[in-house]
Amino acid sequence: MDNIKVSIIVPVYNLSEYIGKTLDSIIYQDFKDFELIVIDDGSADDTLEVINKRLSNSNINHTVIHQENKGVGNARNVGIDASKGEYLVFVDGDDYISGNHLSELYNGKTDFSLIQLVKKDGSTLSNPHHYPTGEISCEEFIRMELNMEIPFNFCQLMYKSSIIKDNNIRFDENTVYGEDTEFALKALAFGDKIAISNEVTYYYIQREDSAIRTSDFRRFEIVSVFENLAEFYRNLGKNDLYDLIITSRIPKAIFGNMNYFFYNDYDFDEVISKMRELDLFEKLSKYKGDKKFEYKIRLFLLNPKIYYKTWKKFKNSI
């Protein structure tokens, strides 16, 4: 692979205000054996000019691909296909990384490695999660995610490129919410070990106009994402992971997103109507696990309106 250890893939769309800082954080990495692939996904502002100016003044190995707007999933897939590195790393065009991001991730041994991420909203930083350090099996990590025992974002990982390419793991280009989680959890199914560091090296910028914040009821797309993932695991003979998704991860995703809409004052009838349209009540009823959480679900299913009124009165106490 041309002796390139890591390929950094950066999709960009109308991010001229942010991409300069993102690129600077990549240019000044203390790890040098990498290539940078930037995919400008049809930006209509001066994003491409900013990219070319920043990179023309650097000496890093880079490729800039300009295409018509096809969405972030497609842009990332184009980056994967163009990559030559032994490992893959993804950085969004409005985020940035610390100077030791690659050196903290790269060990050349494990199939995956992981660092910590913090969310940055203005000048406020979220608290990072602390994992058990060292190495764990990829299947154990998958179970931890499906049980929602860990906060997790796909860009925290470094991926063995051969696992992605040999198993044709790609981003779903028709989904705007959850496609990155699906990508990571599919890839991890083919791995052995994941090395974990508690070093914070990725800064995830919160923007009001981001795709997730403006996707409205499409947040419920995460349900079909996990249904696809469940079938994927079942086809691999991992029936226990299939069951875990159906009886735990999907009901938790439904309930969590429903409460998100309630918390943000969405109209009750609109939320309930959308849930009925997507058959989410039936899927919610399949939950098995924590008795307290199961009790909350039963209260809601028994009478959604009473649950909602009680929730509005007491908020997070139920």
Rank of each mutant, 00 (worst) to 15 (best):
M1Q: 09
D2S: 12
K5G: 00
S7Q: 10
I9H: 05
N14L: 09
L15M: 15
I19R: 03
K21F: 09
L23E: 03
S25Q: 05
E35Y: 04
V38A: 12
D41Y: 08
D41E: 06
G42Q: 07
A44P: 00
A44W: 01
T47C: 12
T47S: 15
L48N: 14
N52G: 03
R54H: 09
R54C: 10
S56C: 04
N57Q: 14
N57Y: 11
I60Q: 07
I60V: 15
V64A: 06
G73I: 11
R76H: 08
N77L: 08
D81T: 12
A82F: 09
K84Y: 06
G85D: 03
E86G: 02
L88Q: 07
D92F: 04
D94W: 13
Y96N: 10
I97D: 02
G99M: 04
G99C: 02
L102P: 10
E104Q: 12
L105W: 05
K109M: 06
K109W: 01
T110H: 03
T110F: 00
I115L: 11
V118P: 08
K120T: 09
D121Y: 11
D121R: 13
H129D: 09
M144E: 08
L146N: 00
N147D: 04
N147H: 07
M148I: 09
I150P: 02
N153E: 12
N153P: 00
C155M: 11
K160L: 15
K160N: 15
I164F: 06
D166Q: 14
N167P: 09
D172A: 14
T175V: 15
V176M: 11
G178H: 03
G178T: 04
E179L: 08
T181V: 13
E182V: 13
E182Y: 13
L185R: 02
K186Q: 13
K186A: 00
A189D: 01
F190H: 14
F190E: 03
S197W: 06
Y203G: 03
Y203V: 13
Y204E: 06
I205T: 14
S210T: 14
S215H: 04
F220N: 04
I222C: 03
V223H: 10
S224P: 06
N228S: 09
L241Q: 04
D243L: 04
I245A: 05
S248V: 06
A253S: 15
N259M: 10
F261H: 11
N264V: 07
F268G: 02
K274G: 01
R276P: 00
R276E: 15
D279E: 15
L280Y: 12
D290Q: 08
F293A: 06
E294K: 12
E294L: 07
F300N: 02
W311S: 01
K312R: 15
K313H: 08
F314Y: 15
